[in-house]
Design a binder for these strands. Structure first.
Length: 506
RNA sequence: GGCGCUAUCAUCUAAUGGUUAGGAUAUGUGGUUCUCAUCCACAAAAUCCGGGUUCGAUUCCCGGUAGCGCUACCA
């Protein structure tokens, strides 16, 4: 067991697949929070033992995502200031494919101790065996055929393999009897009968170790004190424990985190929407919102506070408060949290965040220079309406191009189109008497408008509705004074007058 | 098939051997309002089923059911 005085070391060990699954990210976040809460170290190591699944440039993407999320490793891989993949720490290399010698040495060690053995069975035999077992409704397991091979038999088979240019795999010899108990910080004790555990392959024929061997060796040498990982690993944990025992090592503490589910309660998968952290980032969910949301899937502080910064999470996080039951990923709640964070941004921060989405929507050209003030004003108007950044395009098109709309829309529900036109021309007259300083301030402009409406004894809606539609072409939008003031700032008073003229003559 | 895990409103969850089972999101209604959004108020909404233990079980135990995970030379 980990001593209290020992420095906590946790790790995130993704495979380089090119994106970070939201469930993996949450696990990484928990590992990070736990380490930081205990003044420990958070390590990032890359598990690339499956050469078939290797994706070019994946580590870069991975680190970039971690960095924008603000969850950066103290040790292992990180992204340098020049966006280069670098590593740091005393327990490297942090890429498993660069640690092959270490694994092979330990596998050899196990073979010599009799805790592991060469297996010469062909894939065909293994497949047939599995089919047969399944047909008989028996659990598919390796039948340990090679476990009893004599030294001379092994030598002979080795020779055949060498002649064919192939290599045998190595399997871990599970003790035939006894019970292995996983003591999990979240799930409690889970018992497994050894005889039900399969003799797992630990060295593949391509010379790479499997996950099971590599994870144990690495966690040991990297001095990981708490293995925090997804709960799909619980069933393999007894094998890992037995491996620690075979090596004569003290195992770390384990904390398995429950899964994240689709709304239909299946394991969160690509088929039912986005699963990559990158996907959500691209849609305009803010990193802090994503972190806040994901942290609350399976964990909560047991108070009524729901909005937490990363620093607050570090202060509050406690593995004891992690639930055992899986949680459904509820996009509505994410939207709500995201909109809360959007509202907390300053107009200028928000305008900057919004820029790529305006470009994306074709409203602003890549290197087009627009008045900062204009964009900030627009950002301010939309701030409390946006659920995610990507919505900005469809909401603000009228600021960048004259709106086209059906004239019928000009008619307020309690009035008529003809009346709308009359009101618009009256408003136009009024606006020509209003000084620029008033235009520049939405509040003052609103006051001026209201004063006029009251003085004339008009219905408020009979004036504001058509004016708003004339300016925006939209059924729903921010108020006319706010919009007019923003148009004034970005496009000038003439644009306002021209839109009103246009609406009158439509 | 085997092994394992899980089970409170639609969703995220709180709480408890005795409570009107609490909050949040989403939903609905009303207020504010030219519209939308915000904001405010209100409403509807849950302890999977069956046994046991107990004066009393949503809570503890057992069984069932359901869901999920694992069952690879993938992680």
């Amino acid at each position: 067991m980990a001593q209290i005085s020992e420095k906590v070391r946790t790790r995130f060990a993704p495979s380089p697949t090119g994106f970070i699954h939201i469930g993996n990210f949450r696990t990484a976040l928990f590992a990070y929070l736990f380490a930081k809460h205990n003044n420990g170290v958070f390590v990032l190591r890359v598990e690339d033992t499956d050469q078939n699944r290797k994706v070019e440039g994946a580590i870069n993407v991975l680190l970039k995502t971690m960095q924008t999320m603000g969850v950066v490793a103290d040790e292992g891989y990180y992204l340098s200031e020049k966006n280069k993949v670098e590593d740091r720490g005393n327990f490297g290399p942090y890429l498993q494919s660069e640690r092959l010698d270490l694994y092979q040495k330990h596998i050899q060690d196990l073979v010599e101790k009799g805790s592991a053995y060469y297996c010469f069975c062909s894939e065909q035999r293994l497949e047939d065996l599995r089919k047969e077992q399944t047909a008989l409704k028996k659990p598919p397991m390796y039948d340990k055929l090679c476990r009893g091979l004599s030294t001379t038999e092994i030598a002979a088979k080795q020779e055949d393999f060498v002649a064919n240019g192939t290599r045998p795999v190595v399997r871990f010899a599970i003790p035939p009897e006894g019970v292995t108990t996983v003591q999990d910080l979240i799930f409690g004790n889970v018992e497994y009968e050894n005889k039900l555990l399969d003799d797992q392959v630990i060295l593949k024929s391509d010379g790479f170790p499997t996950y099971h061997l590599a994870v144990v060796v690495d966690d040991h040498y990297m001095q990981i004190t708490h293995v925090i990982r997804g709960d799909e690993w619980i069933p393999s944990t007894p094998k890992h424990l037995l491996l620690y025992k075979a090596f004569g090592w003290e195992p770390p503490a384990f904390a398995h985190v429950p899964l994240i589910l689709n709304p239909d309660k299946t394991k969160l998968s690509k088929r039912q929407g986005d699963v990559g952290v990158e996907d959500y980032l691209n849609k305009g969910y803010l990193p802090e919102a994503l972190i806040n949301f994901v942290a609350f899937l399976g964990w909560n502080p047991k108070t009524e506070q729901e909005i937490f910064s990363l620093a607050e999470l570090v202060a509050e996080f406690d593995l004891n408060k992690v639930n055992k039951s899986p949680a459904v990923f509820d996009i509505n709640k994410l939207d709500w949290i995201n909109s809360k964070y959007i509202r907390e941004k300053s107009n200028s921060e928000l305008a900057e965040l919004l820029m790529p989405y305006w470009v994306d929507a074709g409203l602003i050209k890549q290197d087009e220079k627009l008045a900062k003030e204009f964009l900030e004003d627009i950002a301010g108007l939309e701030k409390e309406r946006l659920k995610k950044l990507s919505e900005i395009g469809e909401r603000t098109g009228y600021f960048f191009a004259e709106p086209a709309f059906n004239p019928e829309l000009l008619a307020w529900k309690k009035s008529t189109l003809a009346d709308a036109r009359i009101k618009l021309s009256r408003v136009k007259d009024l606006l020509s008497t209003i000084p620029d300083e008033t235009f520049a301030n939405a509040k003052l402009l609103q006051d001026a408008l209201m004063a006029y409406i009251t003085e004339q004894g008009f219905d408020v809606g009979a004036v504001l509705w058509p004016l708003r539609v004339a300016l925006t072409g939209q059924q729903f939008s921010p108020g006319p004074a706010e919009v007019a003031s923003t148009i004034f700032v970005g496009l000038g008073k003439e644009e306002i007058i021209s839109r009103i003229d246009k609406a009158i003559s439509l």
